[in-house]
Amino acid sequence: MKREIPTPESWIEPLSAYLAWLRGVRRAEGTIYQHSYQLRRFATSTGLDPWPVTTTQLVDHLASLDDRDVGASARRTVRQVLRGFYGWGVIVERWDANPALRIPAINAPRGVARPAPEHSVKVGLHTPDDRTRAMILLAVRCGLRCREIAQVHTRDLIDDLVGHSLVAHGKGDKKRLVPAPPDVVRLIQDAEPGYLFAGRIDGHLSPARVSELISEALPPGVTAHMLRHRYGTRAYHLGGRDLRAVQALLGHAYSTTTEIYVATSDDSIRRAAMAAAAG
């Protein structure tokens, strides 16, 4: 879990105004938190005031990030955050030009599927903590993200033409319907009315806390997101190899993202190779 980073005094007012701007244009809370975290990290690690700042100083910050903690994808996020903040500064006339616009593009390697091993699923579903077991069940049976698990409410279970579906509250306030298997239906129907995982963030636990609890219940090295990769892989291979259907289930905007979640088995690779070599 990310450590809490204080806000330097010179950043308190502009950062608060920027985050209010993001809320005003209805950015997701997860996005707002990421911008807040990365800007506070930039401020404390560089010791710079918000303005003036140069492109060179921004690039130096990116270069200073520890490769062991920050991969290419995370660096792209930092670049996006800096471009967003200083772009806002120009819009509201706090600064003349956006110094982050000239930060070079950062190429991130294509991701690969990392489905959780089957034994780790069994371990997680046998955890003695009922609440954590319920979280893992939602990840395993419905492929939900941690933020979606955190927001599951009893009213999100609805009847459909063939059984039940669960309303998943995805990124950017987007909602989608995920078919709910019987054990998930029982879990929600037996719960007290309200959020399944009550907490202090709008009445429910934070995504970070959900992720933390799930990871603690799984074997070392297995994460909640790997359960989602497993769901996507199984949905593809056992559900007719329909990538668009899996894309809808996972709530991805692009099928190229879904492809990353779908692991190809050794048997599939061998069958493809033998078919190509035949004749």
Rank of each mutant, 00 (worst) to 15 (best):
R3K: 13
E4R: 09
I5Y: 09
I12K: 15
L15W: 09
Y18R: 01
Y18H: 08
R23K: 13
R23A: 06
G24P: 10
V25H: 05
R26T: 05
E29Q: 14
Y33N: 11
Q34C: 02
Q38K: 09
L39D: 02
L39N: 05
F42S: 02
A43F: 10
G47F: 08
L48I: 00
P52F: 07
P52G: 04
T54C: 01
T54Q: 02
T56L: 12
V59G: 02
S64H: 12
D67H: 13
D67S: 12
D69C: 01
D69S: 09
V70D: 05
A74H: 12
A74K: 06
A74R: 13
R75Y: 12
R75G: 04
R76V: 12
V78A: 10
R79N: 05
Q80E: 10
V81D: 06
L82H: 04
F85I: 03
G87N: 10
E93S: 11
W95I: 12
I103T: 11
A105M: 06
A108L: 06
P109Q: 01
G111K: 07
G111H: 02
V112Q: 15
V112F: 14
A113E: 02
R114T: 14
R114K: 13
E118G: 05
E118W: 11
H119Y: 15
V121C: 01
K122M: 03
K122A: 10
V123F: 01
H126N: 15
D130C: 00
M135N: 07
G143E: 05
L144V: 10
L144N: 08
I149C: 08
Q151F: 07
V152H: 02
R155L: 07
D156K: 07
I158G: 05
I158K: 15
V162E: 11
H164T: 06
L166S: 09
A168L: 03
K174E: 06
K175W: 14
V178H: 08
V178S: 04
P179A: 13
A180V: 05
A180Y: 04
P182D: 05
P182N: 00
V185P: 11
R186C: 03
L187F: 12
Q189D: 03
A191N: 09
A191F: 12
F197T: 01
A208V: 06
A208L: 02
E216Q: 12
A217S: 11
L218K: 08
P219G: 06
P220W: 11
V222A: 03
A224V: 03
M226F: 01
H229Q: 00
H229P: 04
R230K: 11
G232A: 14
Y236K: 05
H237Y: 12
G239E: 04
G239M: 03
Q247E: 00
A248R: 14
G251F: 09
G251I: 10
H252G: 04
Y254W: 15
S255H: 00
T256L: 02
T257L: 06
T257H: 09
I260G: 01
Y261F: 05
V262P: 07
A263Y: 03
T264F: 01
D267V: 12
D267Q: 14
S268I: 01
R270Q: 10
R270E: 12
R271E: 14
A275K: 14
A278I: 11
